[in-house]
Design a protein around this nucleic acid. Structure first.
Length: 788
DNA sequence: GAGTTTGAAACT
DNA sequence: CAGTTTCAAACTC
């Protein structure tokens, strides 16, 4: 990649050599050697790398081996490294290859999430042996996830190129392969193709929407119906985005090489591999060659997506390898190393092992790895997840740290994740696991039945459980207007809803889509998250500046007259966002930040004292948590305050209020909603050529630990119709350069496609951008440039 | 649980 | 774009 150009200039190379002092040749220098070793594959897109949003992709060597703990906010951005070359892996081997995903939450020792494909565990040490620990991998996988840390994926070094973040994503280049693998390793998983009539989700209606919505041409959804899990748990959705050309096989093989996280990594809460690689045509060809059955190369190029759904809500309980490690982490057969000692009461880790077969063949260095993002998992309130889900899924190896999974914000996370997936320009392929709030613990345990509960029951439930999963209660809108939170969130109404005359159901998908489309035509951002979080103060140049101290900001601003922005009537407040200039509120007293830019005294106090309000909320949260024996505690809340980061409220800000236990439960499907088309309509500016992948990340997605670092990341600027700018992730010091203009950038990563994580309900939106269909990076780039 | 308040969404 | 109406959540009693 960095190989000096010798051609063209012709003489340059010679001159350099001749100029080498002391007769030592450049080639002899360790650096040079190192570089050569880095990538056998010559940089298909050198520039790409350098400018890649994902600074992570090219972390300084030193950083490569750094521990995940260093993860910073920046890490959250998904990075994609160009796929240089693709060795031909043996397909059979590939199938056996293990995919290990681990998400690290650097600061969270307790939380860990790993996914592996195959039944055989790979011995980390063995894998390590294949590659010198000191030798960085040629390929760098960025972890675009929110948790993605600065520390290179490599830190896991050799082990995983992992990325941390909740929005984990797994990149698959080859659908067939994926399916095959999944089928083999994950009997419980169900693969559905968009092309096919997906039909109703077996378990959760919410999924329907996703399937319907998200599935666009060439997109496939993989449903992991882990019925195994406690039904009460609810749907657990994971999405695999195939948008990129990344070769799965390659990834797999690579993954085999990767070392399983070891003790060092144990501290990290989540780990996953994220392969955001753009593959050039050559790479694609290689990939294609890899598969005999590939049959449809175009599909790859089309970057079809898949959605893996872990549906836990269903009655069915199939074990696909989830295992609870909370306290029995040691029990994990594989990757025992991954298991950490979580002091946290409750479950601290969730390990998802998808495959355990160990692969021998793919030790080839430089092979891209697959990253599984278990965002949704992470997003699930850990406490509940642990209590409700894990227990039921005793057979599953699920390790999750509560810390990782902070209560709330799941929707946003998911939403963001979805967005990320959607972006097709970005070749990123990812696996997102989305949990439907319905499946969330809150609801879980309370009702296993999927039938709608009566409003009363719901209300009571909400009261008792804090409304964590409460949904809409529409009576007149038929849940086809934005009044309906479900609809607004881009999800189908499900069991917890108390709506009347609801048309927001899979059976009325046509109506839903049409309505949605209509609304989006009116307001492209209608389904976009209302609250946008930034990890740091916004220093936007030439734009409206929100002087709000809060890290979150409402996209439109509120219009409160009487509530003084101190009640949840205020969307800013509800979303944990401070009011900004864009707000038309009167008498603003928003504790998250006033319209005038002042931080309310109470808020400041909150930092030191915890704030009255926050304490209150905390108490609520704790109450709930305690109820579930979860370890989520308010202590985490202050983070937001300190960091000025407020939890990113879900798709709709309101949904995931940081402090509300009563807050509406995130909707798993929020994914659906993402502002699908809306987002897609947003203007995305890529600062780097390689930044094709945008991911909208919420700060809250990141463990507070990660948040501690306020360093901005940077990056992609996304200008939405609302003029909101989103900055692309930049990695400071890593290949990435930080432009002044970016300093103030918000830390959202928007997958262009997805700003709206929602898969657009309509194909139109997709077609509009024609993103889905273009798989080639170049195409994506073109797209991006156009919209710049 | 019913009623009121509130502000966003929708409509004109 | 502004004003009004509709709507459902948030809140109060």
């Amino acid at each position: 990649m960095d190989t000096p150009k010798r051609n063209g200039d012709g003489d340059c190379g010679k001159q350099q050599q001749s100029r080498t002092p002391m007769g030592s040749r450049v080639e002899d220098s360790p650096v040079f050697i190192y570089i050569n070793n880095l990538s056998p594959m010559k940089p298909v897109k050198p520039v790409h790398i350098a400018q890649t949003i994902h600074s992570l992709s090219l972390p300084p060597v030193s950083s490569i081996f750094t521990t995940p703990h260093i993860a910073t906010k920046e890490s959250r951005f998904l990075t994609r490294s160009p796929l240089l070359s693709l060795p031909k892996p043996d397909f059979s081997d590939l199938c056996r290859s293990e995919i290990t995903n681990t998400a690290n939450l650097p600061d969270n020792p307790d939380s860990k999430l790993s996914q592996s494909l195959n039944e055989t565990d790979i011995n980390p040490t063995e894998e390590c042996s294949t590659r010198p620990s000191t030798q960085p991998e040629p390929f760098h996988y960025d972890c675009g996830s929110p948790y993605h840390t600065n520390s290179p994926c490599h830190d896991i070094n050799s082990d995983t190129k992992c990325v941390m973040g909740r929005t984990s994503s797994i990149d698959f280049a080859h659908e067939d392969l994926v399916e095959k693998i999944i089928d083999q390793s994950l009997p419980g998983f169900e693969i559905q193709s968009s092309d096919n009539d997906i039909g109703q989700p077996k378990e959760v209606q919410a999924l329907d929407w996703e399937t319907d919505t998200y599935v666009e041409e060439g997109d496939d959804l993989l449903f992991f119906n882990s019925s195994n899990l406690d039904a009460s748990v609810g749907p657990f959705h994971s999405y695999i985005d195939h948008s990129s050309n990344v070769d799965l096989a390659t990834s797999l093989s690579q993954s085999s090489n990767d070392n399983i996280p070891t003790t060092q990594e144990e501290n990290s809460s989540l780990r996953y591999f994220h392969v955001n690689e753009k593959i050039d045509d050559k790479a694609s060809e290689n990939i294609n060659n890899l598969f005999n059955d590939q049959g449809d190369i175009q599909q790859q190029r089309c970057m079809p997506r898949r959605c893996l759904t872990f549906d836990m809500a269903g009655v069915r309980r199939k074990s696909f390898g989830f295992r609870e490690d909370s306290k029995t982490s040691s029990s994990l057969p594989h990757n025992s190393k991954q298991q950490t000692t979580s002091s946290t009461p409750g479950i601290s880790r969730i390990s998802l092992h998808l495959n355990s077969a160990k692969q021998t063949a793919s030790s080839t260095p430089g092979i891209p790895r697959i990253g599984l993002h278990l965002n949704s998992v992470a997003s699930i309130p850990l406490d509940r997840f642990v209590q409700d889900v894990l227990p039921s899924a005793s057979q599953h190896s699920v390790n999750m740290s509560s810390s990782i999974i902070s209560s709330g914000n799941m929707q946003n996370k998911l939403h963001n994740s979805m967005s990320a997936e959607k972006s097709q320009e970005s070749d990123v392929q990812g696996l997102l696991i989305v949990q439907d709030c319905d499946t969330l613990p809150s609801d879980v345990g309370k009702s296993d039945d999927l039938s709608h509960s009566s409003p009363k029951n719901k209300k009571r439930r909400s009261e008792t459980e804090g409304d964590s999963c409460r949904r809409c209660n529409c009576k007149k809108s038929k849940c086809l207007k934005l009044y309906c939170e479900c609809f607004a969130a881009g999800v189908y109404c499900v069991e917890p809803c108390s709506c009347q005359g609801c048309l927001n159901k899979p059976e009325h998908k046509d109506t839903v889509l049409a309505t949605r489309k209509q609304i989006e035509s009116r307001n492209p951002l209608a389904f976009a998250p209302k609250v946008i979080r930034s990890s740091e103060p916004v220093l936007e140049i030439g734009e409206e500046t929100n002087k709000t101290p809060a890290s979150a900001r409402h996209k439109r601003g509120c219009n409160c007259k009487k509530s003084s922005c101190l009640k949840k009537y205020c969307e800013c407040y509800q979303g944990g966002a401070g009011c900004s200039i864009s707000c038309r509120c009167e008498g603003c007293k928003n504790t998250f930040g006033r319209k005038d830019g002042t931080m309310p005294k109470g808020n400041l106090e909150a930092d030191s004292k915890g704030g009255t309000e926050q304490q209150t909320h905390c108490s609520e949260v704790e109450k709930i948590d305690n109820h579930h024996n979860a370890t989520v505690n308010c202590n985490q809340q202050p983070i937001y305050e300190n960091l000025p980061i407020t939890p990113f409220q879900s798709c709709r800000s309101s949904i995931q209020h940081p402090f509300t236990s009563k807050g509406k439960p995130p909707r798993s499907s929020l994914a659906i909603g993402g502002s699908s088309s809306t987002t897609s309509k947003a203007i995305v500016k890529f600062e780097g050529p390689s930044t094709s992948y945008f991911h909208l990340l919420a700060d809250n997605e990141i463990p507070k630990n990660l948040l501690s670092d306020g360093s901005p990341s940077s990056g992609v600027k996304v200008i939405s119709p609302s003029k909101r700018r989103i900055s692309p992730p930049l990695i400071e010091g890593v290949g990435g350069r930080v432009s002044p203009s970016r300093k103030g950038c918000r830390k959202f990563t928007l997958k262009s496609k997805s700003i709206s994580s929602f898969p657009s309900l309509t194909c139109d939106s997709t077609d509009e951008y024609n993103l889905t269909k273009s798989s080639s990076p170049s195409t994506s780039t073109a797209f991006n440039s156009q919209h710049l």
